[in-house]
């Protein structure tokens, strides 16, 4: 069974987010492999080490720097990479991203058994792409898992996900889509010999036209959503504390709900 891990190059968590002309100022950003994707890569590599997978493929859509994210996945232990890179992709929304990724899988002729994602990317934080890819491919999916048992011969996977007050256990037929989060595993540090090996692993590149798309299908032109503006979240205000006798407190609270935030 082949396992595909979807990787995204995102700003480091310690990056200071700055806006310039209503867009993210990318000039001083350091990029890393999306931390949630690391859990996905680690899980896929463990599947390979445990004899459950024969090949782990890391795939990414993004600019040249996305290669570094792929290289990180290869250093953890993925076997090869696929990068979809094209200037026309700039401005793509999650729908276009999912569409392009799906086409790239098809182009590559991959017979995959599982598709693994990080549950969210720490930059856009939309959580969209895994669900969109699953939908486009007509595959079962579950998200935010903390345990995964795969039975390639039996053609199924069992995943546990956290829900309030307990865990849900999902059994899915293969191929399927899962998204990964903290708690699933402890991603390893890529050792120096593995970083060296990663340099020699192939990364197949595709352009938009390689995948049979035209410029209008992708980027801003192909997007279904549009970002109107970015804003930093407002400063959190201090909470209100009402003191006094129970009757007074209740009265003050009622007045607050009615007059200030107008919910009753």
């Amino acid at each position: 069974m082949k396992v595909v891990v979807f990787c995204k190059s995102v700003p480091d968590t310690e990056t200071r987010v700055r806006l310039k002309d209503n867009r993210l100022d990318k000039s001083e950003i350091k990029y890393i492999l999306n931390p949630y994707d690391e859990y996905a890569v680690e899980e896929a590599v463990r599947m390979k080490e445990g004899g459950k997978a024969e090949e782990v493929i890391a795939i990414s859509m993004g600019p040249e720097r996305a290669k570094e994210a792929l290289r990180s996945a290869l250093a953890i232990g993925a076997d090869r990479g696929i990068l979809i890179k094209d200037d026309a992709l700039d401005g793509s929304d999650t729908y276009v991203t999912a569409k392009v990724l799906v086409k790239a899988l098809e182009k590559d002729g991959l017979e995959y058994g599982m598709l693994l994602f990080g549950q969210q990317a720490i930059d856009g934080d939309t959580w969209h792409v895994p669900g969109q890819v699953a939908e486009m491919l007509g595959l079962p999916q579950t998200g935010s898992i903390i345990k995964l048992e795969v039975d390639p011969d039996g053609g199924k996977a069992v995943a546990n996900r956290m829900v309030e007050g307990g865990e849900e256990v999902h059994e899915m037929a293969l191929p399927c889509v899962v998204t990964c989060r903290k708690g699933l595993n402890e991603p390893r540090y890529p050792s120096l010999p593995n970083i060296m090996k990663a340099k020699k692993k192939p990364i197949q590149e595709y352009s938009v036209s390689d995948l049979g798309f035209s410029a209008e299908d992708v980027g801003k032109a192909g997007a279904l959503t549009e970002v109107l503006s970015y804003a930093l979240p407002p400063q959190k205000e201090a909470g209100k504390k009402v003191e006094g006798e129970p009757e007074e407190v209740a009265q003050a609270l009622l007045q607050y709900l009615k007059e200030e935030i107008k919910v009753i």
């Binding site: 890393i32 570094e68 290289r71 250093a75 540090y189 890529p190 120096l192 970083i195 060296m196 340099k199």
Partner: peptide, 15 residues
């Protein structure tokens, strides 16, 4: 180089 960066980042994290 990319490789030097990967080493630095990995060791920094390990540290």
């Amino acid at each position: 180089t990319e490789e030097q960066k990967m080493v630095r980042d990995m060791v920094r994290r390990f540290a």
